[in-house]
Amino acid sequence: MTAVADDCCVTPAPRFGTRKAVLIVAALAAAGLAAVIVFALLSGDAGVVTNFRARLAAPSLFHPFGTDALGRDMLARTLKGLALSFRVGLFAATASTVIALVLALVAAGGPRWADAIVAYLVDMTMGLPHLVLLILISFAFGGGANAVIIAVALTHWPRLTRILRAEILQLRQAEYVTISRNFGKSPLHIARHHFAPHLIPQMLVGLVLMFPHAILHEAGLTFLGFGIEPTTPAIGVLLSESLRYLTAGKWWLGLFPGLALLIAVLAFDAIGNGLRTLTDPRGSQS
């Protein structure tokens, strides 16, 4: 609360520009993530080639993250694992967003019973323990990257469905939409020009904020052995392998991939929050 006070120029202490900070962090995060993807695309065989003369080497200038039991560079493996995680995250989050949009449209635009069914599905999915559901679905689809994508996609839509449903209901009631209809505008016109510009930013934010969850769950599933094949350099695989050498003091095998995962998740969260700040009209204040 601003103090209503003294005669002259009581301006509240200039607050740190929250919005500016959020935007800078988001931009840095996006740049970092882009660098990971670029590396994974250009690195070729790095991290796959074995080198038995440099097995389990501690971090050095040449191998900043060290090497594993087969002498493979852990930096390359971590970055490749992250890139794979992004790919899984992208597909899963996109699929989940599409599911959320379709269900929200059905719930908000369809008959009352359809709304009830969607509400039931949302409550049920949110009520079940996430990890159990993930394991069951991934197992049912036979494991591997595709199964992980399906499992994550099928479990992450409820929150966004709720948000989009509420938005659509609000838009349908909007006076300017009624007026547009009364001008003889088609449902398609209204969807394109009134609904979409409002919903697309919401969806984008939802999608980006789903990313970190998708990546974490991918790693979790893989770590537990229900996800990606152990031959692929996924973060979950690296972490799982590192356990075997942890007691032998090979700390770098677990620390760097884990840290990279943590940073990537935080980076996506920062981007999502940045996008939300930009698109939320209420965010335009302070």
């Binding site: 609360m1 601003t2 209503v4 006070a5 003294d6 002259c8 120029c9 301006t11």
Partner: peptide, 18 residues
Amino acid sequence: PNAVVNGSIRFEGERLDA
């Protein structure tokens, strides 16, 4: 909170602050 207030408000001669 994003309002910036200048000037004075007095109630019975006493300055009003938050």
